[in-house]
């Protein structure tokens, strides 16, 4: 007979993408306190048993992922390709993350150079998306970050970005 931790594990195992916390809680018919306590217990059981997987909260969803200590041996077998973003593309992404929604002109104003190619790369990778149009001359496209962005940088939400105050932004 499965206990609650077992059910939670089964739900998480069935979902390769982060699963919204509320969705799991409702499916398990638990109130917030019970669910928070269950999560804590499950996390502790994974930690204490020296298991190869751990629980992470990313983009307001829960996901089972392998532990970072295992990444070398996984790469030896699986060699999953993790793409790297170039420095200029990362700069464009940083500007969008902190100034979103931002237009191309606003990004170029900070960097002083064009950023079309970086925007294409970021859109192609699903790290940013068009979030609307700015109500100004030409109605330029506004860009914002996506859940893929949060997952790529292992962030629960945008508030986990390094504090803007520490950089004087």
């Amino acid at each position: 007979m499965l206990d609650k931790q077992g059910v939670l594990e089964a739900i998480l195992f069935s979902a390769p993408e982060p699963m919204p916390v509320e969705k799991i809680r409702e499916a398990m018919e638990l109130d917030e306190t019970e669910f928070a306590s269950l999560l804590k217990q499950y996390e502790a059981s994974l930690d204490n048993a020296g298991r190869g997987v751990m629980l992470r909260t990313v983009a307001e969803g829960l996901q089972l992922v392998t532990r970072s200590e295992a990444h070398e041996v996984i790469r030896r077998i699986n060699a999953p390709k993790q793409y790297r973003l170039s420095r200029p593309t990362l700069e464009v992404l940083a500007i969008i993350a902190y100034k979103q929604p931002a237009t191309r002109a606003e990004i170029e104003d900070v960097r002083g150079v064009k950023c079309e190619r970086s925007l294409m790369t970021l859109l192609d990778r699903g790290l940013i998306r068009e979030v609307g149009r700015k109500e100004t001359v030409g109605r330029p496209i506004l860009y914002g970050t996506t859940d893929t962005f949060l997952a790529h940088f292992n962030l629960r939400n945008l508030s986990e970005l390094p504090s803007p105050n520490s950089f004087g932004l």
Binding site: F13, P16, E17, M54, R56, Q63, L64, V65, T66, R67, S68, H71, I74, N78, A79, P80, K81, Q82, Y83, R84, L85, R87, L90, E91, L93, A94, I95, A97, Y98, V110, R111, A151, H152, F153, N154, L155, P162, F167, G168, L169
Partner: peptide, 30 residues
């Protein structure tokens, strides 16, 4: 400032790249 942030984001991405979800959809090398 944004250059600094880009550097931090790069480090965060590198750390995050060590965690693999089940059925990693990333395209194999090459």
């Amino acid at each position: 400032h944004f250059q600094t942030v880009a550097g931090i984001l790069n480090e965060m991405a590198e750390e995050s790249a060590k965690l693999f979800p089940r059925g990693n959809k990333e395209v194999p090398e090459g």
